[in-house]
């Protein structure tokens, strides 16, 4: 009677999680989530990571009321939310996500950024753990201010992790990655 399609099926969410782990372990690598995304890789990532035990700040109103209800996450201000959802093309402005503390660095927020496309934009050069030498990514629809802001937020072990999502793919920039334009 109640039928749930992707991205709400547990089997698909396990696949998405596997790809997110790979994407975090190899910063800048692109992963296709479209088989389990149900048309929205952004929603697939959130359905995989967010539940009633987490908090979410949807800065740009990217979620419909129904999707937000299905996720079940508590709404929270950007400064305390575990997950922040924002449009990459819009500058972070005065956004101040939780960077964690020295005793609890894992409390640093995860920022999920919706971009137009993971290729075709200005190149970003990545270095750090999980990267053999250097890697390049060129997301289109990511304001450079996000990279500048991130540099101020991340000071090992504190910081925030970025997950960049386009219509069907995902890539990650964990806090340990150094990014140069």
């Amino acid at each position: 009677m109640i039928t749930l399609d992707h991205p709400w099926r547990a089997a698909g969410q396990r696949e998405v999680f596997r790809h997110l782990l790979d994407a975090m372990a190899r910063p800048g690598s692109r992963h296709d989530l479209s088989p389990w995304a149900g048309g929205s890789a952004l929603l697939a990532v959130l359905a995989c990571l967010v539940d009633a035990h987490t908090t979410l700040h949807d800065r740009d109103g990217l979620l419909s009321e129904l999707d937000a209800s299905r996720l079940g996450a508590g709404r929270a201000d950007a400064g305390v939310a575990r997950f922040i959802l924002a449009r990459g093309a819009r500058v972070p402005g005065d956004l101040a996500p939780d960077r964690g503390t020295l005793l609890q660095p894992e409390r640093g927020a995860t920022v999920v950024l919706a971009v137009d496309y993971l290729d075709g934009g200005a190149p970003l050069h990545l270095r750090g753990p999980g990267i053999d030498g250097s890697a390049t990514m060129a997301p289109r629809g990511l304001d450079p201010a996000w990279i500048t802001a991130r540099a101020g937020w991340c000071a090992h072990p504190l910081g925030v992790d970025y997950i960049l999502v386009d219509a069907g793919r995902v890539t990650c920039i964990p806090r340990t990655t150094a990014v140069e334009a």
């Binding site: 009677m1 109640i2 749930l4 709400w8 129904l66 209800s69 299905r70 079940g72």
Partner: peptide, 17 residues
């Protein structure tokens, strides 16, 4: 009974069961 009363209507989960 649920199948009977849901016939001809769309059932949308508001939360994931």
């Amino acid at each position: 009974v649920a199948a009977l009363v849901a016939a001809g209507r769309r059932v949308e989960p508001v939360t994931v069961p």
